[in-house]
Design a protein around this nucleic acid. Structure first.
Lengths: 354, 354
DNA sequence: TGTGTCGCAGATCACGTTAACGTTCATGTC
DNA sequence: GACATGAACGTTAACGTGATCTGCGACACA
């Protein structure tokens, strides 16, 4: 069977001896069409297997009914859930989703913005890389609203929908302090992004507020995976690597907070291999509540992130911008509250005698 | 600043007193344009911030330069990596990606096919749900090639690019038998899809080939998450739930093969809670080599899936169909080889006295 | 000088759709 | 019978491109 041309309104019109316009109106259920004609048109459309051409429609209506999603890495479980939530919410609202993956490369992101601009998407949701916002500005100047997801961008005054990582870090830190621990460490990815800096701030301010001094080098940076093959998933390896050092420095009863659960997992192994029992000799708290975390041994105390809420709120905010056409009014920041999930990995610990 | 209309070819033409056509040719680097004119045009385009309109171009060129990806659940780590690889490969080839998430719902999938048809995408990659292929057939009949990913669909004669799960299950089973175990179980999701049936076949045929009888109910089905909230990630819970029963039935030295690493993780906990030491008293083998698996305690012996290769091969096959226009010729099945990763969870086990 | 050729540009049309505006014709009203 | 009304449809233009054809001047060559 030859892949023949798709039938168009014109084909229906020709076959019924009507004008293209009448056919269009009939199918769109607009008035100025008699019931009989409407039926005939719909029947013929069905018979011919007519499918409307969205691009042609978008061209004349000047709206693409499409949202762009620029994401760094779908293998981050939080981002994966974000994708699902965004796609679903958009679909409910009648929007298709164009996805671009940047792998945290500024150059890729620049090209992504350019491409979405060419498509004339109605709006863009982006988990931005840290540097460069000129492309986002250009996008907005052309009338396309941009909503930042999960990460704040100092150089760009745009709406942000994300998680209150500061609160998450505070809650985790306070919980650990309340359990009696006094020697705390924070392991974070070496990325200059707001979630990391906010968690660090939450950690440090909580300690300061309690008048507790952090040990030297309490905040440990883990190399961000660099030059990794594309689509490489998150990896506990980097945190594992620094776990050895941490195991040496930390006294009994110390607790290590990790910027994400994968890091926590790397620490588990590093500590276990050195004979430290997680949750007994040394505490670990994660961040993210990844699907595996509840099933680790010991079950990981961590901070649950409201991924579906962030996704939905992001879409809603974006569509509100699309609707109002107000691209450049005062940006709104929406930070959704995470929730501390207390399990077993943070204690009760044996207090330090060493 | 008002979100003013995007400049078009016409604006450049007007401003330079040229025809739209000449401007188009100049920007497209075609001949029949003098070098000076070309420079003037490009300069003006730059100055006005001109961005070509992909939809208009696609309309006249009758190709969308877009691929559709229909996926069940991005939270499956294997699928997440697939998304990355597909997006990247497509982008390298100049194609954008339209993503639709089905959450394994046949109705969603039907609508996804319809929507992609309306967009007139050049080709579709799909991880199909088990039932109903009429919408894929319609898509192909309209000239849009469809390549199935990871799952085979008996009712549809389409290209398939996936993983040789049969071989994966064979390799895992043989490894376990070679280690001396004789009591084997297989835990699989209760989904009627080819990866599951192929793994079951590989498991059973390997046992049969070695003349080893499988215990009653050796193949255990785990409830597929149903009615779960959208964007729910994979969950070890279901496997954990049946782990209790398995722990009772299985003798010392038995080994449980799991259909994916999340199931393996659920089993870890179920066994551990009952005092069984994984890798010592009872073996566990996973499938998927999820990023957390190497760091479990004990490290999970599992089957590594070549996600990036599947993604790239899928795009390549699809684009070959697009190029040749041969939508209905003999379908090609490409099964990529997985790789057994031997770690600690499958033994050496204590042999069964019980 | 005529003729062919080449470089460069404009004119025209097409892609498939929707919107604004016209036209036709039956019906109703006074 | 003159005129307004309104339903049902057609005509035309437009969205922003790209392809094809045509036109025109300059130049080389016989």
């Amino acid at each position: 069977m030859s892949p023949r041309r798709r039938p168009t309104l014109r084909d229906i019109a020709l076959s019924l001896d009507l004008s293209v316009n009448t056919v269009s109106r009939a199918l769109a259920d607009k008035d100025a069409v008699s019931p009989e004609t409407r039926e005939r048109v719909k029947g013929e459309a069905e018979r011919l297997g007519y499918v409307p051409n969205t691009m042609a429609r978008s061209l004349v209506l000047r709206n693409a009914m499409t949202l762009g999603l620029v994401i760094t890495n779908p293998s981050n479980p939080f981002f994966a859930r974000l994708i699902s939530a965004i796609e679903e919410r958009g679909r409910e609202r009648g929007y298709s989703l164009m996805l671009v993956v940047t792998e945290d490369s500024a150059e890729n992101e620049r090209r992504a913005a350019e491409e979405l601009m060419r498509w004339g998407v109605d709006g863009v949701l982006a988990i931005p890389v840290q540097h460069g916002a000129e492309h986002w500005r250009r996008l907005r100047k052309s009338g396309t609203p941009v909503v930042l997801l999960n990460r704040h961008l100092p150089e760009l005054d745009a709406d942000v929908v994300g998680v209150d990582y500061y609160a998450g870090a505070r809650a985790a830190t306070e919980h650990v302090l309340d359990s009696g621990a006094r020697e705390l460490y924070l392991v974070e990815e070496d990325l200059d992004i707001s979630p990391v800096s906010e968690r660090i701030r939450g950690f440090q301010e909580t300690l300061a507020a309690r008048g507790i001094g952090a040990p030297d080098g309490a905040v440990v940076r883990v190399d961000a995976p660099e030059g990794v093959p594309v689509s490489a998933p998150f990896d506990p390896g980097a945190a594992y690597a620094i776990g050895a050092d941490l195991a040496r420095r930390a006294g009994r009863g110390a607790v290590v907070l990790a910027g994400n659960d994968y890091h926590a997992l790397g620490l588990y192994r590093a500590f276990t291999e050195r004979g430290l029992r997680v949750g007994v000799d040394i505490g670990v708290v994660g961040h993210g509540d990844h699907p595996f975390s509840a099933y680790l041994d010991p079950a990981l105390t961590t901070v649950r992130l409201p991924a579906p809420d962030v996704g939905r709120a992001g879409v809603d905010r974006l569509l509100e911008r699309v609707r109002s056409g107000a691209v450049d009014t005062e940006p709104i920041h929406t930070l959704l509250a995470p929730e501390l999930v207390v399990r077993a990995s943070a204690g009760p610990l044996r207090r330090g005698e060493r």
